[in-house]
């Protein structure tokens, strides 16, 4: 009657409840989690960005049937196709510069403050198509000061004449 029965096995297995990681492990776990998140933030690969964006878009549509991953994957493939087409079509610096020139010869870039109707008014047949984008309303809401400043003055082009900080002692 030395047979182990279910009860015996269950009791012996209780030993495994007492196997614990080294002291401080759980306290440190959250820090390690944050560190990995920051590392991922700086190293997100393109496919992951596409997948997340596609999935978010589907979720916002609030259509349960579309939140499944096969749909998201399809969306990703479509995005990837669009993006790879765009990447292959990246204009050479010279031609991009040529398009920029026609914008900068006119008024300074008024992205933050220009309402839509003004943008339409500035665009003429002489301007290459790509410049119209630069005159389009900004992607972010302009602040009050930006509205008054950019209408009146061009932007401040930054290159300081002194470094931002300095040291006073040879102490380390």
């Amino acid at each position: 009657m030395d047979e182990f029965n279910d009860n015996e096995i269950a009791k012996l297995l209780r030993l495994k409840r007492y196997e614990q990681p080294p002291p401080g492990y759980f306290e440190n776990f959250l820090h390690e989690f944050h560190r990995r998140q920051r590392d991922e933030l700086l190293r997100e690969p393109l496919w992951r960005i596409c997948l997340d964006r596609g999935h978010d878009f589907m979720l916002r549509l609030n259509l349960p049937a579309l939140t499944s991953y096969p749909v998201a994957v399809t969306a990703v493939l479509v995005c990837a196709a669009v993006i790879s087409l765009k990447l292959y079509q990246t204009p050479a610096p010279a031609s991009l510069a040529a398009q920029d020139r026609s914008v900068s010869n006119g008024q300074p870039l008024q992205v933050f403050a220009t309402p839509t109707n003004n943008a339409d008014a500035e665009w003429t047949l002489a301007s290459p198509a790509a410049t119209r984008f630069f005159s389009a309303p900004s992607l972010r809401n302009p602040t009050e000061s930006a509205f008054t400043h950019t209408r009146a003055t061009p932007p401040r082009y930054v290159l300081d004449s002194v470094p931002v900080s300095y040291e006073t002692t040879f102490k380390f």
Partner: peptide
Amino acid sequence: DDVDASIQNDKEFLEATATS
């Protein structure tokens, strides 16, 4: 992982080990 010392207070575990 190492086994935590509080196993010494585990009545059921000790019973199981006593019988065999």
